[in-house]
Nucleic acid binder design. Sequence first.
DNA 1: GCGACACC
DNA 2: GGTGTCGC
Length: 960
Amino acid sequence: MDKPVHKLFLLDAMALIYRAHFAFIKAPRITSKGLNTSAVFGFTNTLLEVLQKEKPTHLGVAFDTSAPTFRHVQFEAYKAQRQEQPEDITVAIPLVKRLLKAMCIPILELDGYEADDVIGTIAKEASREGFEVFMMTPDKDYGQLVEEHVYMYKPAFLGNSAEKLGVPEILAKWQIKRIDQVIDMLGLMGDAVDNIPGIPGVGEKTAQKLIEQYDTIENLITHADEIKGKLGEKIRENFDKAILSKQLATIDCQVPVPFDAEDLTMCGPNVDLVVELFDELEFKTLKQRVLGISATGQLSPVIARPGAPAKEKKGQLDLFGNPTEEVGKQPAIISEGIADDDAPEQAYEDLKIPTTRRKIDNTFHRYHTVDTPELMKSLAYYLGLQDAFCFDTETTSLDTIDAELVGLSFSYLAGEAFYIPVPADREKALEIVEHFRAVFENENIEKIGQNIKYDLLVLKNYGIEVHGKMSDTMLAHYLLEPDKRHGMDILAASYLNYEPVSITTLIGKKGVKQGTMRDVAIPEITQYAGEDADITFQLNEIFSKELPKVNASKLFYQVEMPLLKVLASMESTGVRLDINALREMSGVLEIDLRQTESEIYEAAGQSFNISSPKQLGEVLFEKMKLIEKPKKTKTGQYATGEDILSDLEANHVIARKILDYRELQKLKSTYVDALPLLVNRGTGRIHTSYNQAVAATGRLSSTNPNLQNIPIRTIRGREIRKAFVPDTDDFQILSADYSQIELRIMAAFSGDTSMTEAFNQGRDIHATTASKVFGVPLEEVTSDMRRKSKMVNFGIIYGISAFGLSQRLGIPRGEASEIIRAYFEEFPAVKGYMDRIVNNAREKEFVETILGRRRYLPDINSRNQTNRGYAERNAINAPIQGSAADMIKVAMINIHDWMAAEKLKSRMILQVHDELVFDAHRDEIDLLKERVDELMRNAIPMAVRMETGIGVGANWLEAH
DNA sequence: GCGACACC
DNA sequence: GGTGTCGC
């Protein structure tokens, strides 16, 4: 029994249109209105002919798109010769598409791919599924795609009848042994039509001889010196052109087009539309013919699906049987005539979670190595045409200051990326980077990246200042899901169902044995780096649509993105550290530490490791039995925290000494000894790294080292700040901090009149609070009352609980409750605000800051009291802490912009949540004081007056 | 991973 | 309430 034969015809629209146009060039068909219809006419004839004669069961017509492709990129060097597309053809294309839509014939096109790529991909897949495939084109390049069940179909032309070419015919035609040699032939001969250069002077005959003898271009090149005479010379001179030509001639059969036989059927022509078009084009005989065809039903039973409903696109499978993810996120793949014009766009969230995770091996991609000056120029040219591109740097180190560039990757189209290897030699590296300077510095091209600040800093070390709008996927996700993690691997998994190549498979596990990116072979690193850029590009497509949905676009593009550049600049500037001062301190601390240590041993009657909480607990509570019922931590150890030891101070001298020991130890190990090691050898300065995407409230954090927790509370601790010094004698340290920023925001949000008044009149807020809470006149407030009120004020911001306050103040729970009760009685608006925001959060399950930065609090409706309480405190604290963060971020951007515009010598060097620190040139100090104060106070207008305190000094301590 | 402690 | 680092 014969299986019914499925005959698939794939038409190369562009080639057929061109051929038709030139066929009639001497006697073009012109309508009465002057429209040249040669191309449409020729195409239509061919189409109808194939429908009638071949009766395909399935068909599709492929078009090129105007989006640039890599082949264009490679082409660029040769493109000069290419002629402009004739206007008649430009006009013909939409008419042909209209015809196809009217006939309900599937149109195949995909941005970034040419018709031959699309046809090649579908042809191979269809043949695997049992189709007989005919690729209808006059273009000889298609020979390379022919295989069992896949044929070239050359349409009838100028008296020649149509030709079907299978494998034997192609081999005979080219006089080659294998089909894959078609591209070697094309690579050698070149192809004038497609602007493939080939080797000059090599035509079909020579190419045949060479391929017969050497089999492939690659092998020919390795034996090029064996070839004598002019030919050998030509080959040796132009081998790169031959390789490039071979690449150019190769049709890509890995296009992300899902093959679905049902997509390649006709849904039934709309005769009215066809007739209307033919009337317009004045195709009289064709009109008769098409009416005849449809009237006799010759057309519809063959390939039509009469009355078949428009197929819904969801749940489509890709070539590998995996659901095509994020329908509507990728470029439209198949526009199936009219039927598909209104295919539903599906939101990401609605998709079922597929069970198989996509990886590089089972996902379409084109990652190219770009390693010649010509290709780099071409790529740069094409990057220059984009509105936006994604880029990523591969380096030898995570530390931006001494990271050496290993490579650059770019992507501006989902699924495609380019990797440029950069050599270790700095001169050569600079030469390569130079190709991309113009696109990086182009103000009008948006730059997309994952943690782009890192890449900006790396490029800065190669003299490139990246300009233009930024879009950082890490920060976008930070605004979308501030509590989640924002690593690329996690984002790829949750938004693209994709698992990127892990870095460990390339350079090994973390540790001394871990290699660097420099050691990875170029093909592997191309895949890895290309994937990074590609995935980031795709994530950005999703996030840029998600951000407006949560009203975060403004915050993203006007705060976080500009801030990223400010932070990059601060990090790269760094802070000067007085290492000698720290060395001296280290010596003193060491002596005191040894002294304290021996005193502790003496008091304890034994020596032990004081730094081990476990040993310390055993000594204090088992041997010395300082407390009857010692507290334990959740892991069962004795608790020896500061609060507990403080309580013991009265009992035994050892407690005080242990606290002293701890302080000295902390200062020495965390600051005095650690900081000098982090001074960069090159700059002689210390370069912290600001993380813009960790604190769920919107604050920054600082690492390597953390310069946001340099001691200030104790006398000995704050000495460390003396080591933070200005650049030269011409500079001083200037520090500007917001006074009570969070309490002021609380006052503004709650609208509490007495609190607002206190601020607006410049009164001592803690003393004022004390006078109200304890019911005494302001002048009778004691220092203890003020201290307690200060704690209450802090507690309010943190979403107070009586328990928390009693802990902080070291007072009984009852007393704490009483203070809170009194507080809320005096500041009823504050209580009202707290209740309001919690209720609001219960309903929406998120809270937001003044700039709309959200924090999601699903636990606010939890039945678990602990979790719910935590969420409630967050509901109160996050908008306040976060709004303060918003405010200083805006201030930083404005200050940075102003300083740049004024071309000041001074630099902003540190941010510590409510404080900005500057390395201030002496000539600019007065100006800075005035403008920084103004820009900080007015960053975001509020109902409550903002105030700053500004100080200047020879070091950070003196500046306070 | 935890406890302790530095900062806002 | 939010962080990061140290030493065990």
